[in-house]
Computed example of a mutant assay.
Amino acid sequence: MGKTNYAKGMYIQPVVGPAVTYVADFTKVQIRCRNDNGSSPTTPYLCVTAGSTISTFWHRRNALPDDIMIVYSHIGPCMFYLGKVTPNPDDIKWFKIYELGYNKDTKKWCSEVARDNHGRMDIVIPKDIENGRYLLRTELLTLQNAQKPMGAQFYPNCVQIHITGANNKFLDPPPEYVSFPGVYQPNDTGILYNLRKDGGMTYQIPGPPVYPPVKNPS
């Protein structure tokens, strides 16, 4: 079955400021979706079947093949979360469905993997969840200045999706839910981190463990 391509930014919540701007203070609400509230009634929802693969694309300037996605000095992990939409975005309970940090075999960070793939990341939507409207939160964390308190740079975005065909249940144990803001703290391992000293060898990705129903493509 073929893949469907959608217009750039069609289902992504608008961000505050330039598209290349990061969130410096992850204790503020902007860490949720890089905007002021985490909801966008004017943004349509993409219909997604549970268990299917969705491809997201990160770009720096444009969607052309020669776009480098992010400058080469900016390296770090990426994380993907799901949160079921609630009337008040502050009440959304998020759970992590994918993460990729530093691969000791290839000696590459997720940011480098994504850049090599022209910004594309393929993510499997879990089957063992509930149907309904969700925010798919994509997040790139760069560590070039993370040796300083509050020096880590976060690039979150939220895609509005409507999941169908799910099993309407969670596996046992269920996901570990977190809040944005709230889950990240300034002294967390993986946020306050000396990249130049360690080079990724002992790096631990921040946030909760990945919810385990499906295996994502490597």
Score class of each variant (00 low, 15 high):
Ile123His: 00
Val124Pro: 03
Val124Asp: 14
Ile125Thr: 14
Pro126Val: 10
Pro126Lys: 11
Pro126Arg: 07
Lys127Asn: 10
Asp128Thr: 13
Asp128Met: 13
Asp128Pro: 13
Asp128Glu: 12
Glu130Leu: 14
Glu130Trp: 15
Glu130Gly: 02
Asn131Ser: 11
Asn131Gln: 05
Asn131Met: 02
Asn131Asp: 04
Asn131Leu: 01
Gly132Phe: 02
Gly132Ile: 07
Arg133Met: 11
Arg133Cys: 10
Tyr134Lys: 09
Tyr134Asn: 04
Tyr134Leu: 07
Leu135Ala: 11
Leu135His: 15
Leu135Trp: 07
Leu135Ile: 11
Leu136His: 08
Arg137Pro: 04
Glu139His: 01
Glu139Arg: 00
Glu139Pro: 14
Glu139Gly: 07
Leu140Ala: 07
Leu141Ile: 15
Leu141Met: 15
Leu141Glu: 09
Thr142Met: 09
Thr142Pro: 08
Leu143Ile: 06
Leu143Asn: 14
Leu143Gly: 12
Gln144Leu: 08
Gln144Asn: 14
Gln144Asp: 08
Asn145Ile: 00
Asn145Gln: 12
Ala146Tyr: 11
Ala146Thr: 01
Gln147Glu: 13
Gln147Thr: 06
Gln147Pro: 01
Gln147Tyr: 10
Pro149Tyr: 11
Pro149Ile: 07
Met150Gly: 06
Met150Thr: 01
Met150Gln: 09
Met150Ala: 05
Ala152Met: 09
Ala152Ile: 04
Gln153Ile: 00
Phe154Val: 11
Phe154Pro: 10
Tyr155Pro: 06
Tyr155Trp: 03
Tyr155Met: 08
Pro156His: 00
Pro156Leu: 00
Pro156Gln: 00
Asn157Pro: 04
Val159Leu: 11
Val159Cys: 08
Val159Gly: 09
Val159Ser: 13
Val159His: 05
Ile161Trp: 02
Ile161His: 05
His162Asn: 12
His162Met: 09
Thr164Asn: 04
Gly165Arg: 12
Gly165His: 13
Ala166Asn: 04
Ala166Cys: 01
Asn167Cys: 05
Asn167Leu: 10
Asn167Ala: 13
Asn168Ile: 04
Asn168Lys: 05
Lys169Ala: 09
Phe170Ser: 14
Leu171Gly: 10
Leu171Asn: 14
Leu171Val: 15
Leu171Glu: 11
Asp172Ile: 13
Asp172Cys: 13
Asp172Arg: 15
Asp172Gln: 12
Pro173Leu: 07
Pro173Ala: 05
Pro173Gln: 14
Pro173Ile: 09
Pro174Val: 06
Pro175Asp: 00
Pro175Met: 03
Pro175Gln: 03
Pro175Ser: 01
Glu176Met: 03
Glu176Ala: 10
Tyr177Trp: 11
Val178Gln: 00
Val178Ala: 01
Ser179Ile: 02
Ser179Pro: 14
Phe180His: 04
Gly182Leu: 03
Val183Asp: 06
Tyr184Lys: 03
